[in-house]
């Protein structure tokens, strides 16, 4: 039962139990406890994330803590104030969420927020989803080395496959269209100097594509 529970469903279950005549007081108590712990964990995790961001930034402020002539707050005054504001804001958020949670009066706001969360992140992500998130970073790692012009068609095809496009004709047409328009507008018309790579033979291939696109100009 616990494996399929989400904060929203737990609260809904809890409310449903509450409306029943009660020979189920113990179960109600346990559902209430599960909901409380789940929401508290989320609140604490968010607080930890914000505190870590503010803390890391705070530690780095020492690298530029220098005096500026005619300005008493120095270069570090403003970032320091913002780090403090983040810490205070995150702590206030934690306190409010815990208090609300404890009182068992989760507002509409939380249920709306939670339903959105459960819609978008239930359980473990699939391999396909992980691949969608990883693909841009792999492309970015390879692009400066192998060149934009050689890598991009593969990137488009991979993205289409990951988005469950299976028709060969569609993949070919979309790739040709997106790649062609990008080349025409940015390489031929606007002369954007996109990366041509630094590893042979890709360097040569990229330059050949650029020459082809700009032919006749």
């Amino acid at each position: 039962m616990c494996a399929s529970l989400t904060p929203t469903s737990m609260i809904a279950n809890f409310r449903a139990f509450c409306s029943m005549p009660s020979d189920r007081t113990e179960t109600t108590q346990s559902v209430r406890l599960i909901a409380f712990l789940s929401n508290s964990r989320k609140a604490i995790l968010e607080w930890l994330a914000w505190t870590a961001i503010a803390g890391v930034a705070f530690l780095q402020i020492g690298n530029f803590r220098r005096e500026i002539a005619d300005y008493a707050f120095g270069a570090d005054g403003w970032p320091l104030a913002i780090c403090s504001a983040i810490f205070i804001g995150a702590t206030l958020q934690l306190v409010v969420m815990l208090l609300r949670n404890r009182a068992g009066m989760q507002s509409q706001l939380e249920s709306a927020g939670n339903s959105r969360e459960t819609d978008s992140t239930p359980g473990w992500p699939s391999l396909q989803l992980v691949a969608i998130f990883m693909l841009p970073f792999i492309y970015l790692f390879l692009m400066p080395r192998l060149g934009f012009f050689a890598m991009t068609p593969f990137f488009i095809v991979a993205l289409l496959l990951l988005m469950q496009v299976r028709s060969f004709a569609t993949i070919a047409l979309v790739t040709l269209f997106a790649y062609g328009i990008a080349l025409l507008i940015f390489t031929r018309l606007f002369y954007v100097a996109l990366p041509v790579g630094r590893i042979e033979p890709f360097y040569g291939i990229n330059n050949a594509i650029v020459s082809l696109v700009r032919a006749g100009m």
Binding site: L59, Q60, N63, F64, R66, I68, D76
Partner: peptide, 14 residues
């Protein structure tokens, strides 16, 4: 920074 032109967060030590 807008007053003294001192670079901020360009060095990280963690």
């Amino acid at each position: 920074d807008p007053v003294g032109g001192i670079p901020r967060f360009d060095e990280w030590n963690l």
